[in-house]
Amino acid sequence: MRLFVALYPPPDVVRHIGAYVDGLRIGRATADGVNVRLANADNLHVTLAFLGDVDEGRLPDVRAALDRAAPGWREPSRRRGARRPDRSDRWRHPPEPVPESDLAVGPVPAGGVAAVAGGPVARLRLAGGGRFGRGRFTVLWAGLDGDVDALYLVSGAVRSELRRSRLPYDRRLLRPHLTLARPGEWLPRAAVDADLADLAGYVGPWWPLAEMVLVASHLGPRPTYDRLGSWPL
């Protein structure tokens, strides 16, 4: 089984970024029948940990690791060891004041964390974007803004529990992003650059970090994803 742990944005966030992408060159190219491999709206996600191929017999161990990680990421000791890239890079959209009308649950005080019943809730939004690779390896993505530190803590907790259970996972540093398209060489470079410039100004609605999902992916011309379970955060 090819497994990963992901964060799925809620439907209103998916609709918002979807409508924006429709107006980009990648969206218009898709409407014209050009195969720029636009991500399916149902599959839009942020990967927190990639396990890769795991024997099906170890699936209970994976579930047990996530059972421990889901509540464990909030432990104060984890904040001291969270690994993250230099925040001076382009992975985070410049911070802005948070209008109360943009929030799903109550106002957000300084620091961007809303206090609600059951504990503080991390708030996120899709904002900005970037590109991986060049030529036929080009991938366009949307970035994240808000309580991004929480993603590093959740990812760190998941990876710690996977390591404790001697399960495989990709040890590269987390780079939070949401893949939008893999245009490769189907679009001229100028069109890709223009989409990148437009993505830099994108800001989506706020949403709470509510749950993580264990996913099995099946590769092919049209990859499919099966959600095997979710854990509240």
Rank of each mutant, 00 (worst) to 15 (best):
M1G: 07
L3R: 03
A6K: 02
P11E: 12
H16W: 00
H16A: 10
Y20V: 03
A41W: 10
L44A: 04
T47F: 06
L51R: 06
V62R: 01
R68F: 09
A70V: 09
G72R: 11
R78E: 12
R83C: 06
W91Q: 10
W91C: 00
R92A: 10
E96L: 13
E96G: 13
A104E: 14
A104G: 12
A104T: 13
P107R: 13
G119D: 14
R125P: 02
R125F: 01
F132W: 14
F132L: 14
R134Q: 15
R136I: 02
F137N: 15
T138S: 15
G143I: 02
G146Y: 02
G146A: 05
V148Y: 01
L153G: 02
V154I: 15
R159V: 08
S160C: 13
R172S: 15
H177C: 05
L180V: 11
G184K: 04
W186L: 10
W186M: 09
P188T: 01
D193F: 09
D198T: 12
G201S: 10
Y202P: 05
P205M: 04
P208F: 11
M212V: 13
V215T: 03
V215N: 01
A216D: 10
S217E: 03
L219G: 13
T224P: 05
L228R: 05
L233Q: 06
